Each structure stands twice: as C-alpha cells, then as structure tokens.
Simulated assay, not measured.
Amino acid sequence: MTPAVQAMQRSDAQNPAMLWVAQGSELWKASPGPHRPACAACHTGGMAGVSARYPAFSDELKRPVTLPQQINHCRTTRQDQPAWRHDSEALLSLAAYLGQQSRGRPIQPPQDPRLVPWQQAGEALYRLRMGQLNLSCAQCHEERAGLKLAGAVIPSGLATGYPIYRLEWQGMGSLPRRLLNCTTGVRAAPLSEDELTQVELYLMQRGRGLAVETPAVRP
C-alpha cells in the first residue's frame, strides 16, 4: 500500500468503503418485510468483536460458516427472506458494517477442534500448485511477498480487511472474489464454496493476533 492508500483507509471521511458501511447500518436497523424482525431486534448487545471470530462452526448447519454465510443463514431462517447472492451490494454492506465494529481488534479464530480438518484442508490448498502456471498461493504470498509482479507489489496474503474496497474494482468485494481472481490468474479451475471456506479458515488462523482492518482499501 502506498502512503496515499494507507491514508485513504485510515480516514473515514476519505475511505470509499464507508458508503457501504453506512448502507449496512441501515440494513441492520430495518425490518426486511412485514412482521419480520430487523437484525438489531435480535442482536441487542452490539456486534463488536464478532467478525474477528469468523469463520466459525455452525451447530445448526453442522459445518464452518463465514460471516456472509451466517448473515444469509439468519436471513433465510430468522427473517424468512431469500438469501442475498454472493458479492451483492446488500451482503457486502452488512458484512462491512459488522466488520467495522471489530476494527482494531485482534483476529481470534475459535479454538474449536471441529474446525481443524477444514483449516488443514485450507492450508493444503494454499500450498498446492495449481493451474496452467503451476503456482501456489504460498509461492507468491510467502516466498515472493514484497517483490513485484507486472509492476505491482506482491502482498503477504493476509486477509485482515474484508470485505474491502479495491481501487482496481472501483467497488467493494469479498475474500472469495479475491481468491477466485487468483485462481483465474494462474489459469486454474475455480475453487468450490467449501474450498473457499477452507482457505478462509486457514488465512484467519495465519492472521491470528493481527488487527481487523475492515473496511480496508487496497490498490
């Protein structure tokens, strides 16, 4: 990140992602339909620190879920509404609003043995050479972090600020969108939803103790 991008992220007045946070705040307080509870009606104690603990294991679904997946689960089961599509403005906005409430808090993945097989599978995918270019995530984001690829600095692959505003996208995007961009870049088959969750679990474990930056800004 250049100093200008860092400054943009630090200032709520300049950070374009705050537009999505504001929309998420309205969605949080609004009833989604007649006689349907708003999110705020159930979650009265505030959500500070919640996004720092996701993905987490869902007792209802019997599997790990990401924060956007949990939002959609609440939406379909508690509010009787259709799930939002992946990377929709509404889902990104609500996830950004919840993430912003954990900003500055350390990432603390749950110490849940049920998550371990998924985390291990996520690390295996992270280190797996894939696609026609035969590259792994680790080769770029560990071995070559700080070097340049096509003029851009290779980051260290720490997912501390999602959903993020990317200047390249001119909008907000999720971690799965970024991961799928990478698999496309190495000309590999897209990861499945389960595989995306596995990689996210590993990345959160890898980032344990780092501060939540949501909503982050990236080039």
Rank of each mutant, 00 (worst) to 15 (best):
T2D: 13
M8V: 15
R10Q: 15
R10I: 07
D12A: 12
A13N: 10
Q14P: 02
P16G: 09
P16Q: 09
M18C: 05
M18F: 14
L19P: 01
W20L: 11
A22E: 14
S25K: 14
W28S: 05
S31N: 13
P32V: 11
P34L: 12
H35D: 15
R36W: 03
A38T: 06
A38L: 07
C39R: 05
A40L: 13
C42P: 11
A48H: 07
G49H: 10
G49V: 12
S51A: 15
R53A: 04
R53E: 06
R53I: 04
Y54F: 15
P55K: 03
A56D: 11
F57I: 07
D59K: 11
D59E: 15
L61R: 13
K62T: 05
K62Y: 03
K62C: 04
P64N: 08
V65D: 00
T66G: 00
P68V: 09
Q69R: 06
Q70C: 00
H73D: 12
C74T: 12
C74S: 10
R78L: 14
Q81I: 00
Y97K: 05
Y97W: 15
L98I: 15
Q100V: 15
Q100N: 13
R105G: 12
R105N: 11
P106G: 04
P106K: 05
I107A: 03
P109R: 08
P109C: 09
Q111E: 13
D112V: 04
P117R: 08
Q120F: 02
Q120W: 03
E123G: 02
E123C: 03
A124K: 14
R129N: 12
G131P: 07
G131Q: 08
L133D: 09
L135S: 09
A138T: 02
Q139M: 12
H141E: 02
E142S: 03
A145V: 06
G146D: 12
G146Q: 10
K148L: 14
K148G: 01
G151I: 09
G151A: 06
V153L: 11
P155M: 10
G157P: 07
G157I: 02
L158A: 11
T160A: 11
Y162D: 00
P163N: 06
I164Y: 02
I164C: 05
Y165H: 15
L167H: 13
W169N: 13
W169L: 14
W169K: 15
L175D: 05
L179E: 05
N181A: 08
C182A: 08
T183I: 11
T184V: 05
G185K: 08
R187M: 14
A188Q: 03
A189L: 07
S192P: 04
E193C: 02
D194G: 00
E195S: 04
L196R: 09
L196F: 10
Q198K: 06
Q198Y: 06
L201G: 06
L203F: 07
L203G: 06
Q205Y: 06
Q205F: 04
R208L: 07
L210V: 00
V212A: 02
T214P: 01
P215C: 13
V217Y: 06
R218P: 00
P219K: 01
